[in-house]
Amino acid sequence: MWRAIHRLGSPAIFYAVAGRLQPWCWALAIALLLAGSLWGLVWAPADYQQGDSVRILYVHVPTALLAQSVFVLLAAAGGVFLVWRIKLADMLAAAIAPFGALMTLLALVSGALWGLPTWGTWWVWDARLTSMLIQLFLYLGVIALRGAYTAAESGARASALLALVGVVNVPIIKFSVDWWQTLHQAATFSLVRPPSMPASMWLPLLVMVAGFYAFFVALALTRTRSEILRRESRTRWVRERVARTTGKAAR
């Protein structure tokens, strides 16, 4: 088991394994997202109070979940990179940080679009909204700090440390709706109690959430692979691989 993980930590092996997994992940993501979108936007019933605006749910919840999951993964990758100096962890972090920032932005925008018809306002300074906004700035800080260093290695370690420091915000977002009395509703899904909405609505939501996660995995694999190629472009295995695909002899 540990040996398998260690082997996967090598960029060359990860590149090959990810390359084999990648098409399946993309196929799964596209299938789930298509099915979920059709189900959620066309066949699922409209809410008796909110009407069709409730369908924003099918985008808002998956993006908000991913925004937090990606940050946790970013911090975990940062920790692995700082402690064990596994380069692959940093390549993964570099590949997923912009995606996490985008998901946070999408969650905020879709939430604002949903807030106007239901709450009557684009924005309230509610605990969950504010902590999501802070998370967006933390993402931007992590990305900017990496770019600010001229030595790539230092920038990678600095941004890994910042991700570890910033991860304290994730539980604050998660529990903000339980700790403070706010406008935002409590969690949609829970492992310990049945969903508070009918199955005709939470089933398509579940499909959409799974689709977004599959999309994230597929994108992370693809982006990490190109990050590997970019950083390892001087190594022998990359040159040989490129030579094989382009048909030229390796030097």
Binding site: L140, L145, I172
Partner: peptide, 27 residues
């Protein structure tokens, strides 16, 4: 001080420092 330490070696760390530190100041 965490932010100041992260940006100490950078030529123009001032603006970056505020981006890093202000979100953490919010609580």
């Amino acid at each position: 001080a965490i932010g100041a330490a992260l940006t100490v070696g950078l030529a123009r760390g001032g603006l970056l420092l505020s981006v890093l530190v202000l979100p953490l100041f919010v609580p």
